[in-house]
Design a binder for these strands. Structure first.
Lengths: 198, 198
DNA sequence: ACAAAGTAAGTAAATGTTCATTTACTTACC
DNA sequence: GGTAAGTAAATGAACATTTACTTACTTTGT
């Protein structure tokens, strides 16, 4: 029996992320993807049911899953508050810096209804998606260190600015001067922490 | 000479925003739009050069422009810091609460290369896009009230969480209980302000 | 009467997806 | 150790449909 080529699977996914980053999700077609990945269109359908199935799996596995793994590196839910937040900032920035294409599709997760639903379903089904962070926040709320707010509100406060900063970082990669420096990131992270602590 | 019908123009734009919000930008086609707006496809092309031209104008006029006008209502660049930030939060939330469809396309502005470029170009060309807010921030940096950070970083810190909260608000409109209440918004806004002030 | 606004029906090209077939590898026998 | 059968992987050409956009005509308001 002829074995499955992992390269092809890999190529499909990475080329798809490239196209999405360069031309947008709305300009990714299955035929264009196949041509760019040097495979037959049919091959994609051996691995995925249809375009929707492909996009959702790409988003969940390659973007959400990989990001979750990266962001939780060395993280523990019983870390000190400032320490934990700083680590998440550091991990997030480092990960996306090295995976710009994943970041592009991540952004689409907030726009596209398809991906948005996929995210919500994963969140509901698995229940424990990003659960270490949720528990981390919960325990610091209980301890009275940070205000009692809905989990999503806490996450918005702590991490939404970071995503905008990463976005801004990428907008400056092809310009003379990078404005999102390590110092800026540190200062921003500290401001966010200061704002949260009661 | 027969005058252009403003209703049709209006219908095209509002129906487009609806489709984008419901099915995503990647699922908006000119034919679908024409059918949904009860006009001939050709009519769209009487008003816009092509699809790209249409999308960019929709984004710039209907989303960015309208949002700018709404957010700057009663705003003045020489407001007190906390007062100014709170007003922007209030205006932003109010506007999007009443214009959910515009919010959807706004989110695409951060993903889609097409819209992203359009935004950047408008920002560069007009130079003074959202300029009252820029001047407002600049003056408070000068006064030493908030740290000297790049404009985009300041904006990320102050407003990125707000957009996530609006998004979260919409995710709860069809659920039993709204978690993003006025109280939550106020608390978040105050935390953001506290974090920024040196 | 005129000229622009608007339309229905069309175009070629591109879309998502499938068919019938070929390729490349494993395995079992001589 | 060579080889041929067996099998899943992979393919290129095709499918019906949809795409962005036009053509040729009708309607409308002055």
């Amino acid at each position: 029996m002829r074995p499955k080529s992992l390269e092809k699977e890999e190529a499909i996914r990475s080329v798809a992320l490239q196209i999405i980053a360069a031309e947008g999700l709305e300009n990714l077609s299955m035929q264009k993807l196949a041509k760019a990945a040097n495979i037959s269109p049919r091959t994609i359908y051996l691995k995925y049911e249809n375009k929707e199935d492909f996009l959702v799996k790409l988003f969940i596995d390659e973007v959400l899953g990989a990001y979750e793994a990266a962001v939780l590196l060395n993280f523990s839910e019983d870390m000190e508050f400032a320490e934990g937040v700083k680590l998440i900032w550091k991990n997030t920035f480092q990960y996306f810096k090295n995976n710009q294409h994943a970041f592009s599709l991540m952004q689409y997760g907030k726009s596209s209804p398809l991906l948005n639903n996929a995210y919500r379903e994963k969140n509901i089904q698995e229940g424990q998606y990003f659960s270490p962070i949720r528990l981390f926040l919960k325990s610091h709320v209980r301890a009275g260190l940070i205000p009692k707010l809905p989990n999503q509100a806490l996450r918005a406060m702590l991490f939404a600015p970071l995503f905008d900063l990463v976005n801004e970082y990428f907008e400056h990669t092809d310009r003379p001067k990078q404005v999102i420096t390590a110092k800026v990131l540190t200062e921003c992270c500290e401001a966010v922490i200061k704002g949260m602590i009661k």
